[in-house]
Structure formats: structure tokens, C-alpha cells
Amino acid sequence: MTRIWLLITGVLAIIVFATSLLVVIPNTMIGQVRVPSQLAPYTGQQARGRAVYVAQGCVYCHSQQVRDPVYTSDKDRGWGPRATVPSDYVYDKPHQLGTMRTGPDLINIGVRQPSDQWHHTHLFNPRSLMPWSIMPAFPYLYDVRDSSSLKPGEVFYSVAGGKLPTGKVIVPTADADALVAYLKSLKRTYPVPTGNEPAARSIGGRSEQTMP
């Protein structure tokens, strides 16, 4: 081959074709997804918690998707009543679908673990609840305090498993509270949206004014 322009044309054609097929066309199609009426947008605190989730890199060990029960055991493991669908993720930016399950899937963790106490002590040190866990501890999300120093009305948690000296408790930081609020909001148990609900709105480039 002697012509550079021929090479460049071919190279560009390849990438334009692939981008059209896997980015542009899906954008026009997925753009038609309806927002499920049962799925609320993240509150300010939940959105902050999601940012904490992203910044700590939780996605490298935790997926957020339930695959088709026909050929996976995701549903049978209790990770969700059905496979997740595109409309379950309309508010997720960036997506956190994940490609690794060193830990369990979290798309329905808000259903499985509704307890603040569980989440906080688990985040402070997962081995306080499960000695075999290999999840990192996140002590920097908590203030460790003497129980005598607590002010009235202050929320605190004691940690089991000998992970704190006696007399010490943990007080969640705002980031920890936000993260737990986000985790508790992860629920995709409503029926698959059919797109016919009265509250359904289209999202995507052409009707952005309807986005909440």
C-alpha cells in the first residue's frame, strides 16, 4: 500500500462504523427508555453517598446488576427478584454496573440490609460482623469517640467483634451517613416497567425538559 489517505480512510471508517453501532444507535434506542414510576431520583444525601461510593472504588468488588435467571443464579442467591433492565439505571451517572464480584451484588442491598447499625459497623470494620470478610475497613469514615464524650442526641454505634476498645464508640461522618443512605436506597424490586404507567416519562436527548 502506498497511499496514506487510503489507510486513514479505512481506519476512520472502522471506528465510525463501530461507534455508530455501539454508541450512536443505542443512544437513540436506549434514549426511549421510560423512567419507572417506582424509582425515585436520588436525594441530595443519597447522591453525595453515591459520590463517596464512586470515590472509594466500591465498583471494583461489587457489581450492581442482576443477570437473567434463566442462565445465572443471581436471582436464586437472593440478589433480586428479577433481572435488572435499562430503566432501573436512568439516574445512575456514572454507571456502577461493575465487572467483579469479590463481594456480593449490591443493586438490592437496601432491601437485604435495611439497618443503619449493620451498615455502619460493617463499613467501619467488616470483620466485626463476618470474621472471614476480605472487604477493606473504612475507619476514616468514622470518628472513634469515648462513649462518655457523646453529646445528647448524637448518633453513635458500638462495634462488635473486639474491633474497638471498651468504652469507645463510632460516630459516622457526613460522608458515612450519605454512603449508608445511598446503599439503603438501592432497591430494584418493583415489577419491570412496561412503559405504560401514567407517570412514565421519556428521557434522553430529545426530551430533556422532562428530566427531574
Binding site: A18, T19, L22, V23, P26, N27, I30, G31, V33, P86, Y89, V90, Y91, D92, K93, P94, H95, L97, G205
Partner: peptide, 14 residues
């Protein structure tokens, strides 16, 4: 920066 949800996933892995 405009992608969200599963589109964001598709573009990510693309």
C-alpha cells in the same frame, strides 16, 4: 460527559 445509566456502561466498555 452526557451519557448516563446503561448507555454510560456501553460507552465505558466500548
Amino acid at each position: 460527559p452526557t451519557f448516563s445509566g446503561v448507555e454510560s456502561a456501553a460507552v465505558n466498555w466500548f
